[in-house]
Nucleic acid binder design. Structure first.
Length: 898
DNA sequence: TTACTCACG
DNA sequence: ACGTACGTGAGTAAG
């Protein structure tokens, strides 16, 4: 019969190991109450990974009771050099014990003794009583306890893996010595961590050699006369007292006066119900998901809201088919709806399955997408203005449904959008992950259910798929109320209801419309470019003396800075930097000129010509970008597949790419409309700076006006181009959260000069100075900053001890309200614009947004009307203390619409 | 996957 | 003294 088992865990050493394993991210493991949890996370994984599969009969976690032990009495410097335990760890000790208890394991500590001694004593007792003993620790010294009955598991780097020390393993690692002799080794070597000396000049190698010959320290000194005279012998004689003391200190006490017996250590098993609130307290999302999936009830209530929405994991999902369609006619006036696609690009991905329903009447799922298309109650609900829809990602759904010719209306709650507005930091595109962030755990992430990469697969079993989809719908439905409450608390209901949600529909139409790309034109460009690149390539090989991969910064670095002996001006993490700013400083070297040109053309070729050709839809010769509405930290949009917000414009070569963007119909034109200086106007508005506001009210050239101020010119003095250039850089710098270093680098002056310029600027625009100070103070006090439309950005690093992190947060505090308010404005303009076009019965369509610019296509005959309408709608989007200014340009291609 | 480079506002 | 401009996406190389 197998022996009963006793598991002994070294709490202190494992807590330290866990803590330091995640020390780099210590500030990322913070509970909502501000408790650090990195050691708790590591320790929890350890308990789950070891105790759970182990199912011991007896178990104990031993802790150190305090600083003074019998060892400090013998040697008052014991552990003397050790740094004070960091506060971030100290605060985790109490919860660690609580966690151990909830895992069904006894905690124990004994004043005057270390955890080692408690373990040593119980291990010995256990072995005698016939238990198979296992010790888990982060401290290899414990291997001195190893015997036939006692195995010691020592964590390796990263704590998740352990080495199993048996007598054979000890012999293997210590060159044939037995476990008890580890004490002798420590006696000779000492221990820097515990701060006891050993014999000066004896290290691990010598110690092992000596013990192989003399077996133990007492025997060594008994036989020391046998030793031939040597430096080593002298050291041993001089260090005898230290050796004997160190040996004593290294010896684990196996007879500590414990107040507990083996009987007290019965393993209780995990107390799941009690773990739920405990994990909630610590914000252990992943653990809560695990428990939810095991069927434990988790409340979604949040301590800081009054809402207490209890959700059980019981779920009612039925399969929907043509025969029971009538069931959904009785769902009522509010439904949760989710449509699963087989890919992330909703313009092309195929619908896989859907789920509809609500908590009151249950959920219905089906793989039969045809059910949506035909004239069924489903389609009627989705297109019914009277039925509220709760969804995840309105825009994706609108586009996907529009491909099925379903016009989705009356979206009430969008989980993705609402979560993004509440906290841009935890923007996730996975419904499950987002639900977890919002304390709803009865749903898994797609990765958990579908796998990822090559393993991605939608479950073949209806039951599995429908369960997952049902839970998604349930998550959406359950979170509507609490998230609306939070939006209200943040004064963001308006932002959600009048800006972001309507914008989803506007963006969907723009994406669906797409923009036509002249593939022929791109193909012409490509063949020309191929020739030019081939020529350049040959020239570069000649200049270098041999062939190499020009596109490899690593190989290029070797050519320039080793073979050709040029001076490297900047380094990256991995080697020499070969970026434009570096190469431009040595541009009179012929090969460098060639490389800069090659890079420019290669970029145009691969990213724009070939990149665009790849994404043109065969059906309509258009590209249909996707705007990511819930990604940026500032509230801007971003654009992918393709990115139409970074089409070249600054350099003529690249700008010609725009010749390939054309209207979708003959006799139509493209019109671009851009806000002039929107960010600086926003700056003038929110800082309330009188001088800057006056400049905009008088429609002055703002950069020239700034140049006059920072260079002390008269009000009507002419401003030369260089001064204007510098002033422009300063204006930009202010928007970015200026630093003297950044400005100096940008305009090529010394840091000191830059500092002086900034100082003058802030004196001249004193409202700006006051505001920058105020906004940083606001961020410190509230932990976030916001835009004119109450878009919020949290800045946890504003209080960071690390100078860099803190400085970055301070610059962000200045930049985000400006960039974000500009984003608010153009979003409002887009919604109004869409409405105005409809109202006026115009054929014109809004196609693209590029942060401060909108691009339309329209019949040429509407041009005159649009040239009045577009600027009027855009500049009246919001009322600021300064006017907004919009310029329009029209042409047969995007290139000409400048 | 990460680093580098470079396109845009 | 610290080491910096803000916000993005995509292609290529190389581990």
């Amino acid at each position: 019969m197998a022996k009963p088992t006793l598991l002994l865990i070294d709490g202190n050493s494992l807590a330290f190991r866990s803590f330091y394993a995640l020390i780099n991210q210590v500030d990322r493991f913070l509970s909502h109450e501000g408790l650090h949890t990195n050691a708790l996370v590591g320790f929890n994984n350890l308990l789950d990974g070891i105790v759970d599969p182990f199912q011991p009969d007896l178990a104990l976690v031993a802790w150190d009771a305090g600083k003074t032990t019998f060892r400090t009495e013998k040697f008052d410097n014991y552990k003397g050099q050790r740094d004070k335990t960091p506060q971030e760890l100290v605060e985790q000790f109490e919860p660690l014990r609580e966690m151990v208890a909830l895992h069904g394991i006894k905690n124990y500590e004994l004043p005057g003794y270390e955890a080692d001694d408690i373990i040593g004593t119980l291990a010995t007792k256990g072995a005698t009583a016939g238990y198979a003993v296992t010790i888990v620790t982060g401290d290899r010294d414990m291997t001195q306890l190893v015997s036939d009955d006692i195995t010691v598991w020592v964590t390796k780097k990263g704590i998740s893996e352990v080495d199993h020390y048996t007598p054979a393993m000890v012999a293997d690692v210590y060159d044939g010595l037995n476990p008890k002799q580890i004490i002798e080794l420590k006696g000779l070597q000492g221990d820097t961590a515990d701060n006891y000396p050993g014999v000066a000049g004896i290290g691990p190698k010598t110690a092992i050699k000596l013990m192989k010959e003399y077996h133990s320290i007492p025997e060594l000194y008994a036989r020391i006369d046998e030793m031939k005279p040597s430096k080593q012998k002298e050291k041993l004689i001089a260090g005898e007292a230290d050796a004997r003391l160190s040996r004593e200190l290294a010896t684990i006490d196996v007879d500590a006066p414990l107040a507990i017996n083996l009987d007290d250590l019965k393993y209780q098993g995990i107390k799941y119900e009690e773990l739920v609130p405990f994990y909630q307290h610590l914000d252990f999302k992943a653990q809560l998901v695990k428990l939810a999936n095991m069927g434990y009830v988790i409340s979604t209530s949040d301590e800081d809201t009054t809402n207490s929405n209890m959700t059980t994991v019981e779920l009612d999902v039925r399969e929907l088919s043509a025969t029971n369609l009538t069931a959904i006619e009785n769902l009522g006036s509010e439904v949760d709806f989710y449509l699963e696609l087989d890919g992330e690009n909703y313009h092309t991905a195929a619908p896989v399955a859907f789920v509809i329903g609500n908590q009151t009447n249950g959920y219905f799922a089906s793989r039969d997408v045809e059910l949506l298309i035909e004239d069924t109650p489903l389609k009627r609900i989705l297109t019914d203005e009277q039925v509220k829809k709760n969804v995840f990602n309105t825009k994706a759904l609108v586009v996907a449904l529009s491909r099925l010719e379903i016009n989705l209306v009356n979206v009430n709650f969008d989980l993705l959008l609402a979560s993004y507005l509440l906290d841009t930091n935890d923007n996730q595109n996975d419904l499950g992950a987002l639900a977890h962030e919002n304390n709803f755990f009865a749903v898994q992430t797609d990765e958990e259910v579908y796998g990822k990469g090559a393993k991605f697969q939608i479950p073949a079993m209806d039951a599995d798929l429908f369960e997952h989809l049902g839970r998604k719908a349930l998550a959406i439905g359950s979170l509507a109320k609490p998230l609306f409450a939070k939006l209200a608390e943040h004064a963001q209901l308006d932002l959600y209801q009048t800006i972001e949600l309507p914008l989803s529909f506007v963006l969907a139409s723009m994406e669906i419309a797409g923009i036509k790309v002249d593939a022929e034109r791109l193909l012409q460009m490509r063949s020309k470019m191929t020739e030019r690149l081939a020529e350049l390539e040959q020239r570069i090989y000649q200049q270098a003396g041999h062939e190499f991969n020009i596109q490899s910064p690593k190989q290029l670095g070797v050519i320039l800075f080793e073979e050709m002996g040029l001076t490297p001006l900047k380094k990256t993490k991995t080697g020499y930097s070969t970026s434009v700013e570096v190469l431009e400083q040595m541009a009179d070297v012929p090969i460098v000129e060639s490389i800069l040109m090659y890079r420019q053309l290669a970029k145009i070729q691969s990213t724009y010509i070939e990149g665009l050709l790849r994404v043109i839809h065969g059906s309509d010769s258009k590209v249909h970008t996707r705007y990511l509405q819930t990604l940026t930290q500032t509230g801007r949009l971003s654009s992918v597949d393709p990115n139409l917000q970074n089409i070249p414009v600054r350099v003529e070569e690249g700008r010609r790419i725009r010749q390939a963007f054309v209207p979708s119909k003959p006799d139509w034109v493209l019109i671009s409309a851009d806000y002039s200086q929107i960010e600086l106007r926003v700056l003038a508005h929110i800082t309330g700076d009188a001088a800057m506001q006056a400049a905009f009210r008088q429609d002055e050239d703002i950069h020239a006006a700034t140049a006059r101020r920072i260079f002390g010119l008269a009000e009507d003095a002419p401003v030369d181009a260089e001064m204007r250039r510098q002033a422009k850089a300063v204006n930009f710098g202010i928007v970015y959260g200026i630093s003297d270093f950044g400005l100096a680098k940008n305009i090529g002056v010394t840091r000191k000069e830059a500092k002086a310029i900034i100082e003058t600027y802030l004196n001249e625009y004193s409202g700006v100075r006051a505001w920058t100070e105020e906004i940083i103070e606001f961020a410190r006090e509230h932990g976030y900053v916001e835009t004119i439309a109450h878009r919020r950005r949290y800045l946890p690093d504003i209080k960071a001890k690390n100078f860099n992190q803190r400085s970055f947060a301070e610059r962000t505090a200045m930049n985000s309200p400006i960039q974000g308010s500009a984003a608010d404005i153009i979003k409002i303009a887009m919604i109004n614009m869409q409405a105005a076009l409809e109202e006026q019965g115009l054929e014109a369509k809004m196609l693209l947004q590029v942060h401060d610019e909108l691009i339309f296509e329209a019949p040429a005959k509407e041009l005159t009307q649009l040239e009045e309408l577009i600027p009027r709608v855009m500049d009246s989007a919001v009322k600021l203390a300064v006017p907004l200014k919009v310029a329009t340009h029209a042409g047969k291609t995007w290139y000409e619409a400048k």
